[in-house]
Nucleic acid binder design. Structure first.
Length: 573
RNA sequence: GCACCCGUAGCUCAGCUGGAUAGAGCGCUGCCCUCCGAAGGCAGAGGUCUCGCGUUCGAAUCGCGACGGGUGCACCA
């Protein structure tokens, strides 16, 4: 149920009738006809641009079309007013009964706002994908929250979603992890660890080294790397993934698939992916032209195996093999995305940190080539999170060991606040995260503000329950403030579809803030007008009718917070 | 030098596949608790949407070009 699409259907129906009568010419496209909430509530409840869009192709004046359309729409019981305004807008006023009906729908429909837009399409959302070399930090947190909310949003809009994490366990950095762990292993056996430049100094490896010492004894002491590297790497990587899984769980993020990069090596899968590209004539041996502008110090032309990504929108072709014949990091990435394509997803979404913006074009080129342009890949970049403490920038240094982990954030402010705050900004805008402000209980803090609205509803419900009110689903809407809330509720399904289509979960957070705002306004109006209070003294029937609206608000807030992965609070503490 | 992202009120930011007089919070001014949770609400002041050209009935939104900020730019993953 989406009131806006219902009314749009009515508009299109009316336009078709006009065509049938010869009032409009045949063959018009109504695709661009929209029915939207007007910017200014004084303009009415909904506005359609039909007359302006059709004026040119129909060779008629917008005003004439609008007036003919208005006359038809008024025949529908739902439309009480239709007036032409501005350059040719048709402003519609809906019958109060429509809004009451909407509130009833919210209360009686299972999953009001859920959409079938996705039509069961299989979507793969890959996010976090941090190197398995240590705990997740703040930057990963934003990617985790964003990816998870986007995945939920797409599910809510009718897609079948797979949440996936790509483990970069095939490259040099896991060797570094192994060497770092080895030093902790030595340390556990009483030696002084030699953690030189380029090794990971974090003490999260201390227990790993200790466990290894208990497991293996001293057999690896004073042994060359060739003896222990493989085993230590495998052990440490597994430990780090356990750590990461636990970090994610503390945020409420659970992946469906953890995909190992290493599983691509030595199994012919990279070769297969490149063979697929080769079969399309997209692999060749060649020398890349040096970049324009200042040359890198050690530039020298080299012949390499290249992927002709420029055929699919990239700026330059990309090497898939190094000059020594080994794969570049890009090769397994291609194989990984080839695997996703072969698993039959209808759409792929990758979420990267903004510092990986440079890889977007080549990944899109690869997926385009591998799927013959049939599987779209959308890459969303998440910008920096700037940390503050009491208004002051929070200094982070990896060297000094003062970098802030996901755990630090979740432990201090909790998963709900972390998630909501991370979603109060567009993904491609940087985000200020102040440890004190996010816990503040004021309008300035959207988490609190939305939760407060939800808690207020439940406060009313508790009281109503104590009074013995029997709930009814038909509201009595009279005041403008009540109607304003109902109208906001009507926007919810439409907003879900817009947010899902644009892959922008932050729109949900902003909507919830607006809904909460309308609700708080109504609440306060009860101060001046006792007849607007939800609890009507001594009148259980009136109370039941009054609390239908706040109940509907709670339903939508609860659904919206659910998408964001935030628990709706029934009480503020 | 090239690519991508960003530029909206004093500050932090929304702005719907292009729609009407561009919105919210903070801050500033003034109001509202014998009343369901004032942890709230109402009202006011504050704008050449960085600039220019173009497309369009209509541009903050689309295209081109400047300017300003961020990020990334051959074998490292």
């Amino acid at each position: 149920m989406n009131l806006f699409s219902d009314i749009r259907a009515l508009v299109v129906e009316s336009l078709e009738a006009m065509v049938g009568e010869g009032a409009l010419p045949e063959g018009l496209s109504f695709d661009n006809v929209t029915v939207e909430p007007p910017r200014d509530a004084a303009h009415g409840d909904m506005a359609t641009n039909a007359a302006m869009v059709l004026a040119k192709p129909a060779k008629q004046k917008p005003r004439d079309i609008a007036e003919a359309l208005a006359a038809r729409l008024l025949a529908d019981a739902r439309i009480v007013k239709a007036e032409v305004a501005g350059p040719g807008f048709l402003n519609l006023r809906l019958d109060t009964g429509v809004w009451a009906g909407l509130v009833e729908t919210v209360l009686t429909t299972d999953g009001y706002g859920q959409s079938t837009m996705g039509a069961g399409q299989k979507v793969n959302v890959e996010y976090v994908s941090a190197n398995p070399t240590g705990p997740l930090h703040v930057g990963h947190t934003r990617g985790a929250v964003f990816g998870d909310a986007l995945a939920s949003l797409l599910e809510y809009a009718g897609h079948v979603v797979t949440r996936e994490y790509y483990i970069n366990d095939g490259g040099a950095q896991v060797d570094v992890l192994a060497r770092s762990t080895y030093e902790r292993y030595r340390e556990a056996l009483g030696h002084t660890p030699e953690i030189g430049e380029g090794l990971y100094p974090g003490d999260y490896l201390v227990p790993v080294g200790k466990a290894l010492a208990e497991l293996k004894g001293d057999v690896w002491l004073d042994q060359p790397e060739s003896v222990w590297l493989d085993e230590v790497r495998e052990y440490a990587t597994a430990q780090m993934m356990d750590l990461i899984r636990a970090d994610l769980k503390s945020l409420g993020v659970e992946m469906d698939v953890f995909f190992s990069e290493k599983s691509l090596y030595g199994t012919g899968r990279i070769e297969a992916a490149l063979a697929a590209l080769d079969a399309k004539g997209l692999i060749y041996e060649g020398v890349l032209a040096p970049p324009k502008g200042k040359l890198p110090e050690d530039w020298e032309p080299r012949e390499q195996t290249l992927f002709k990504s420029t055929d699919h929108g990239d700026d330059v072709d990309r090497p898939v093999k190094k000059s020594d014949g080994a794969w570049t990091y890009f090769a397994p990435d291609i194989a990984y995305h080839f695997d996703k394509v072969e698993r039959g997803f209808d759409a792929l979404i990758d979420i990267f940190g903004a510092d990986h913006g440079g890889y977007v074009k080549r990944m899109k080129a690869a997926v385009s080539a591998l799927s013959d342009g049939k599987v779209p890949l959308d890459v969303k970049l998440t910008q920096l999170v700037k940390l503050f403490k009491n208004g002051e920038p929070f200094k982070m240094s990896k060297r000094a060991g003062t970098f802030v982990t996901l755990r630090d954030v979740v432990d201090q402010v909790g998963p709900d606040v972390t998630r909501f705050v991370m979603l109060t900004r567009k993904n491609d805008a940087s985000l200020d995260f102040d440890f004190d402000k996010v816990l503040e209980q004021s309008r300035e803090n959207p988490v609190f503000y939305v939760q407060y609205a939800h808690a207020r509803v439940h406060s009313v419900l508790r009281k109503a329950d104590a009074l013995g009110v029997t709930l009814v689903d038909q509201p009595a809407l009279v005041d403008e403030a009540e109607l304003a809330v109902a109208k906001k509720l009507a926007e919810w399904p439409r907003l879900v579809e817009i947010a899902a289509r644009t892959h922008e979960p932050h729109r949900i957070a902003f909507y919830l803030y607006e809904l909460a705002s309308e609700f708080h306004a109504l609440w306060n109006r009860g101060n001046d007008k006792p007849e607007l209070r939800f609890l009507q003294e001594g009148d259980l029937a009136a109370t039941a009718a009054k609390i239908a609206l706040p109940r509907a608000v709670a339903v939508v807030i609860s659904a919206g917070l659910g998408i964001l992965g935030v628990t709706p609070a029934e009480e503020m503490r």
